[in-house]
Design a protein around this nucleic acid. Structure first.
Lengths: 333, 333
DNA sequence: CTGAAAGCGCTTACAG
DNA sequence: CTGAAAGCGCTTACAG
């Protein structure tokens, strides 16, 4: 085993003090070009690598972002994970991945984040309790809810503007000629499902169009089973707004199984614009979440908070756009 | 902000030495029940939480597992991530997630893992160079290639027995009556694709059945485009073995677009048994990777190595099983 | 079993 | 700009 090399070893070889070695690796410290050169050469020769733990012990800060995620079946979330990891890597941060089974993150997950003194926390597809939020506040750890928001104003959240989006979807389906609509909800306690339902309902009621709502759970099976039930009960609408894409795919499959033609017999709109929505089998009309902007917004906020903690809470909502595909194009009879 | 509480504070309140406090939180240290009780009470009152960094600085070991992953589009991998995270959490380990864009992990990724002194590394959907492996060896960090193997014998890998599996798939398709087969490969440089091709070829040649091979890339689009090309060139076989499920879904969609009936006109077998393979639209016959066993095997090895480093290299291969669905059932003409 | 003390590898005032 | 020194919050021989 190669003996572990420390700043002291480098200092000896470079003929400088250990403090100078430290300064070379500490951003913003003042070192002469000459010293820097000597140190870097010695470090290279010895294979020196500053110890992150000694560093964190003193500065009491890390370059670790805690990312908490529930859903991995919905391809939207792995994509979010990938993007955050790549973007944060560019600025020297790494991702501590935490998986939770609950809608609200639990004590053991919070302990992990606190034990590692993460610089910031991103929670996606889940929320957290007010008391958990307090714990992070006490430790001055900034937190962002990504794609979820909480009514309490103590949380900073970044979402797509779900209300506006679902209103636009309502207008669109009605303009396409739908007169009997259905909304299939995601998990009832999620802000996304609630707001999508509200926006859609607003518009549909305004136009006095018939609407029936069904509850489901944001999974493929949920969408599939709900649609089958609708079909078997002879409640088929002429237009569906399904609260996310993965459920919408289940709906499309159920319709296909029952020889119900889309978009001629009924139309379907999803939400997220996951990659599969564009697959030729599905060709799903959907709302594109502005993921890049949502991620950029999250990062800007977190980086500011890491440098200068304020703990301000705000709900950021970013518009997305409708992607029209084959599940809504007017049929040519 | 709550002032940071250290072992010293707890010691003072409990009326013991700081060493005793430390011993309470250090597994295997000897403390009397009485001291332990006093310490835990004081800790509870103050909200004490041992500092992981100070700890790691001394022990030079962490409870962090580095997990490196390339593909997130293929749902197989997010599933792997989720399972590892849940299982490691049970034994007190956390996951540092590293995303790589390359088939072979690069220096910057390795630096992250080394800087954080991860206890072990799992690399999935990617490999690493021999020199990178040496770096981990020098630091006595155990590494497992998950679902990939490398011909050099210096790497410990855990895979499904791809050779055996693809032989079984060959036998199966021939038994189903196929006489003109096609193999659609994944990325050419991956061990999985190479071995699946070899096993399948072995059997097909043994039976003197016609076989044509196509190269592709383990993506949905890859499968879709390859199948379209096959169709347009009038090379349609009566049986496909597609190197993974996500490509097989693309193949099925291309066939459907061209009104080619499955399984009557041609049969399709995939590999992985991802969730979508069981969706009613696809109903794909496939090989189930024994994910739970693969994960258990990986963890057993790593935990042993963390406790007692040997650096032994071995290729572990675990059988899976064929899942027969609608894309191969004999057609009733 | 327990305490006093050394030390892990760094950062950071403090002088110069 | 640079060095000597203190100290971050722990673990771990060493005595007792």
């Amino acid at each position: 085993m190669i003996p572990k090399v420390t700043a002291k070893d480098v200092a000896k070889l470079a003929g400088v003090s250990q403090s100078s070695v430290s300064r070379v690796y500490f951003e913003g410290a003042s070192v002469s070009a000459k010293t820097k050169k000597k140190v870097l050469e010695a470090a290279e020769e010895l294979g020196y690598r500053p110890n992150e733990f000694a560093r964190s012990l003193i500065t009491n800060r890390t370059k670790i972002i805690g990312l908490v995620m529930k859903g991995v079946q919905n391809p939207f979330y792995p994509q979010v994970l990938k993007q955050f990891t790549s973007e944060f890597k560019k600025i020297g941060y790494s991702i501590l991945f935490v998986h939770t089974n609950n809608d609200e993150i639990q004590k053991d997950d919070i302990d992990i984040l606190l034990n590692y003194h993460v610089a910031a926390v991103i929670i996606t597809d889940a929320t957290l309790s007010l008391s958990a939020m307090e714990e992070f506040k006490d430790n001055k750890i900034p937190v962002v809810l990504f794609n979820r928001k909480v009514v309490k104003s103590d949380f900073y959240s970044v979402c797509c503007n779900n209300l506006k989006a679902s209103e636009a979807i309502g207008e669109f389906l009605i303009a396409e000629g739908c007169t009997k609509l259905a909304y299939i909800a995601g998990n009832a306690n999620t802000s996304t499902s609630i707001e999508r339902e509200r926006g859609f309902t607003n518009i549909v009621e305004k136009h006095n169009v018939h609407l029936k709502k069904y509850s489901s759970d944001y999974t493929y099976e949920g969408g599939y089973n709900t649609a089958r039930e609708i079909i078997s009960k002879k409640q088929l609408p002429d237009g569906f707004f399904v609260a996310n894409d993965i459920m919408a795919l289940g709906v499309l499959d159920a319709l296909r199984e029952n020889q119900i033609a889309v978009p001629n017999d009924t139309k379907v709109v999803g939400f997220d614009n996951i990659e599969m929505a564009s697959w030729p089998t599905y060709n799903l009309t959907t709302w594109e979440q502005p993921m890049d902007e949502m991620i950029a917004e999250t990062m800007t906020y977190l980086i500011n908070e890491i440098e200068n903690y304020t703990g301000i809470a705000k709900n950021i909502e970013i518009d997305g756009k409708l992607i029209v595909r084959e599940t809504t194009k007017k049929g040519v009879d």
